[in-house]
Amino acid sequence: MADRIAAAFAGHGRRAALMPYLMGGYPNLPTSHAVAEACADAGADLVELGVPFSDPLADGPTIHAAASEALAAGTTVDDVLGVCEGVAARLAVLLMVYANTILAGGAEAFVGRAASAGAAGLIVPDLPHDEAAELRAACDSRGLALVPLVAPTTAADRLAAIGQDARGFVYTVSLTGTTGERGELPAELSSLVEQVRAAAAPTPVAVGFGIATPEQARGVGEIADGVIVGSRVVRAAGDGGAAAVRELVGELGRALEG
């Protein structure tokens, strides 16, 4: 399953792979199924599927509110795994899931459920490298990639250790802050990506946080192997459902061509 990530990064035929984020169960469960299909229809290469959590420390207002709404409507982890299962045949699904969701039933049990649902990997925003060994081993044994995150504040020696243990790709957080659309991305982003690339090679490097417009996606696509668009896609799902997401992802994909 982790091989599907490598295939997605190798075979997109564009400047970079496109990875939209959607929140499971938002704006409601049927629509989130349709949003996942829309991402595949519109040419996404991978999809990041958020598992709503009550206390999402890495998320800004848009994704936090979407998670709260999904939970208020009764969305369960099984519901979100159902969204994963529904779209996993069409593209590689990375579950964005907070540590406590995994620990609640134990790492091995969660990884087993994710594997059964066809997930290609996990992204755990509050499980830094020092705490990740047990989950990485569980993922390795089931063929899932535990994708690590690095940030602009990550020191060089730490970057090297994280790069060495990376599976799938390295999720580079573009800015110092929480998720959410930004008017401008940090000027130092390209040098950050270069450092991450040097530490992680040959593992691909994707960039997320703050990317909202096709222009920004194109800019990031010029320096990174993958472009992750989160809050902007979640906003489209809330405002206009699957149709709006199909249009937005199509537009982002075209910006990465040529």
Binding site: D126, P128, P148, L149, T154, V173
Partner: peptide, 12 residues
Amino acid sequence: GGRYVPETLIPA
């Protein structure tokens, strides 16, 4: 115990 926080905070 431990440090279950976003990577961004580890240096702090």
